[in-house]
Design a protein around this nucleic acid. Structure first.
Lengths: 349, 349
DNA sequence: CGGGACATTGAACCTAGTCAACGTCGGTGG
DNA sequence: CCACCGACGTTGACTAGGTTCAATGTCCCG
């Protein structure tokens, strides 16, 4: 029997939903404001949470934010209910990690369907989780501390992030870092005028946010899922404790970090002195090398390529057309193929 | 009684110098080629080495290179003798860490003077060394491994680098990293067309070359002394062993590295989207903040500022003139004073 | 005092950003 | 099912910022 938690300040609405769910054989908990909702979630560990957005004591976004901070509640499917049809509101909810959206008014069927879909999806994820943990094996290959690291991975449930969902913003208080089990994450920095620079793209088996370990209270860049991802979250304190105990874990992160420094230095040189043409070529080559394993195509938008190479989208468009004319690449609207990586890597400046 | 080692393939020359030195009460060893010279240096640990450049088996540069790799011999004063008056040859020798240059022909007085000067200088350095080790104290403040690190620092003799002397080149095999006791070091990368980007400037109490720990076989940037420096060298293997043993040492380096990553990301953003005007301002501010503690002036050449901000020296010149007209800085030929750091940091792009 | 390194200034040129118009695709709603 | 909208891509024209080349000036060192 599944446990469901309803957080809704309107009495009628709350009662109504409770009734429906009880009839559908759920064990139902109900809270009349956000604060109580969070308390109940932590106490009862429900299997699913349905939460209104507009509430007095603590609104739905706040509830989601708080629950995400606790490991035990961060993986519970979370459904917003709201009359807000504004796209940006939905977007905001999704970015924060809500799993679904119920728009008022909705009927019983819609409600139950939505909940069931989410529960089913979560079950699938947990099955998948069994596989992805094996992929971690090589990461935790030997000696003392790394098995502990592996155990940390196993202990925690994985978290699913949707495309475009935000892991953290620059300036957010540091909670922890993420290991990617599946999918791609990009980290970005935003310039004063709003232009965005993609500082890195991470793949499965890589850590995101390592640059805050032992150094920062707040994140110094933004991290966003660029496709559906499953991630494993490591609370910073536990991780730092682990590092302080096990030199092999520490060594692993030193290695990761010094590689990052090397990469960034290289990027820096390119940014400083290479022509846009060359920078775009390098961006494509690098992306291809790290993220297109078996003949996969490059599926970045012009805008994303521009952010990677620090240019304007129009310039990317032009340059790609040039490349195509010169027989260096093949391009369609949303796919790129590198035809001559040799030549691409040896462009004149 | 000082021990002197002469490495010289010409018999007459070698014999001649030996005689002079013996008369001056040195204990003299002589080798007739580079290979033997290195062996003897390692065996006898002389107090000073006089070495010819042009030799068959192993030339003077090779001797110096090999001796620098061994800790026990790397701090021995090293004097080249050569008929080469070419400036670039002298420069090369100096860059490699030779302490002085004797040009053929030279007389007895010149020889003895040169040797004595070097020996005296080395003694002074060793005295100074007693102070600088105390400066390290705060670095090795607590807990288990850091005292070991401190011991490593104490155990090894410091090495003096002259202005413009090279610590390592990009592509060189990694031997170790350096801790700065006094002076400033810059790391640079060179673009294909020869333009140079300064990736960082390091100060006393900072480590240079941390980005190779656990990751690279060869250095990925160049490191040069920008003023007279005393450095402490850590062989990479010993350091990595220490890190593997002591988590607090590891933690220290993780902290250093993640800070570096953060810095470089910020630089990257600036390089990508900031105007040259703003980049130059940021370079000045950053240099001022980190390297001009108590009202010191900024003493970088236009060329160096250009390398820091990824521009052309002419542009720096122009921009600085603009800044001066706007009352933001005061400048003379070789000194800059920031008059209005507030305004400088808030330039429009 | 002369040479060389560094700094300044001018002028020409060119790369890449910006603004704008238009094309194309996919999804949504009437 | 079609029309429309919005997001993304392409192309053109214009512009400005910055590099480059070159000439000249200034300081420091031997």
């Amino acid at each position: 029997m599944y446990k469901a938690l309803i957080i809704e300040d309107n009495f009628e609405m709350r009662d109504n939903i409770s009734e429906i769910l009880k009839l559908a054989d759920y064990e139902v908990y109900a809270a009349e404001n956000g604060r109580k909702g969070v308390e109940m979630a932590l106490e009862h560990k429900p299997d699913i949470i349905i939460c209104d957005i507009m509430m007095d004591e603590l609104d739905g976004y706040g509830v989601l934010f708080l629950l995400n901070k606790h490991l035990e509640t961060s993986t519970i499917p979370f459904i917003f209910i709201s009359a807000k049809t504004q796209k940006q509101d939905i977007r905001k909810g999704m970015e924060m990690g809500a799993d679904d959206y119920l728009l008022k008014p909705f009927n019983d069927i819609e409600l139950l369907n939505t909940i069931e879909t989410r529960l089913k999806k979560r079950t699938q994820q947990n099955n998948f989780y069994g596989n992805s943990i094996q992929k971690i094996e090589p990461l935790a290959n030997s000696s003392r501390g790394l098995p502990e690291l592996k155990k940390m991975i196993e202990d925690r449930k994985l978290r699913i992030f949707r495309k475009r969902q935000i892991l953290y913003y620059e300036g957010d208080k540091v909670t922890g870092i993420y290991l990617i089990l599946k999918g791609k994450i990009k980290t970005t920095k935003i310039a004063d005028d709003g232009r965005e620079l993609t500082t890195a793209i991470y793949n499965a088996d890589q850590f995101v946010g390592t640059n805050v370990i032992f150094s920062n209270d707040t994140y110094i860049d933004n991290a966003v899922a660029i496709e559906e991802c499953s991630l494993c979250f490591f609370p910073i304190k536990e991780l730092e404790k682990l590092i302080s105990q096990y030199p092999d874990v520490a060594g692993k992160f030193i290695k990761i970090l010094s590689n990052e420094v090397c990469d960034k230095e290289e990027q820096l040189l390119q940014m400083a002195y290479y022509s846009v043409r060359k920078r775009i070529a390098e961006s494509l080559l690098s992306y291809h090398k790290h993220h297109c394993n078996n003949g996969e195509r490059i599926n970045l938008t012009r805008y994303e390529i521009a952010n990677l190479s620090g240019t304007a989208p129009e310039t990317v468009s032009r340059t790609l057309s040039d490349f195509e004319n010169e027989g260096l690449i093949d391009k369609s609207r949303n796919e790129l193929i590198l035809l001559n990586t040799q030549k691409l890597s040896k462009l004149r400046n």
